[in-house]
Amino acid sequence: MRKLKGPVKETARQKRERKQEFAKMRKQIHTIVLPTVVVIFLLICVYVYIKTRPSTMHDA
């Protein structure tokens, strides 16, 4: 038999599985990645605030 050139056609089952994986990755972005980015951003903000606030040690 002759082999056809080009990629193999995706079956309905493979397409469904691929879409499920994509949905799973999208859910992980919302449940893992975004909260992690927010926590890192807040830590940076707190660090900058602590380093730039005026000193409160006045001997008056």
Rank of each mutant, 00 (worst) to 15 (best):
T56P: 00
L4G: 11
E17K: 03
R2T: 14
R2L: 15
L34C: 10
K3Q: 12
V33T: 15
S55D: 13
L34R: 09
G6I: 04
Y47W: 12
F22S: 10
K9H: 03
R2P: 11
F22R: 08
E17N: 04
T36M: 15
Y47D: 06
L42V: 15
K19I: 15
E10I: 05
Y47M: 09
K3H: 13
T31C: 12
Q20S: 15
T31A: 11
T52N: 08
P35K: 09
K5P: 05
L4A: 13
K3C: 14
M25D: 07
H30A: 13
E10W: 08
K19R: 13
R53D: 06
E17H: 00
D59V: 06
V39Y: 05
T36C: 11
P35N: 08
Q28Y: 12
R2E: 14
Y47R: 09
V46D: 05
R53H: 08
I29N: 07
R18Y: 06
E21F: 04
K51H: 01
K3W: 14
Y47L: 15
L42E: 01
V39P: 02
T56E: 10
P54T: 01
T36D: 04
F41V: 07
E17T: 04
V8F: 00
P7F: 02
R16P: 00
K5G: 10
K51E: 02
T36L: 12
M57K: 12
P7E: 00
T52Y: 06
E10H: 05
Q20G: 06
V48C: 10
M25C: 10
V37K: 10
Q14H: 10
Y47Q: 05
C45F: 15
I44R: 04
S55P: 02
R26Y: 13
V38S: 07
E10P: 03
M57F: 13
L42S: 03
A23K: 03
V46W: 07
I29W: 10
F41T: 03
I29Y: 15
T11E: 00
K27V: 14
P54M: 07
Q28K: 05
I44H: 03
H30P: 05
A23S: 11
P35L: 12
T36W: 14
F41L: 14
I44W: 09
Y47G: 08
A12L: 11
V8M: 02
M1P: 11
I40C: 04
R16H: 10
H58D: 03
I40W: 00
Y49R: 04
A23V: 05
T31M: 14
E17A: 00
T31N: 11
V46Q: 01
G6K: 00
K5H: 09
F41M: 07
Q28P: 01
V33G: 04
I29L: 09
R2Q: 09
S55C: 07
V48G: 07
H58K: 14
A60K: 06
T36I: 10
Y47H: 08
E10N: 01
P35M: 13
I29E: 05
A12T: 07
R13V: 15
K19L: 14
T31K: 13
D59F: 10
T52V: 06
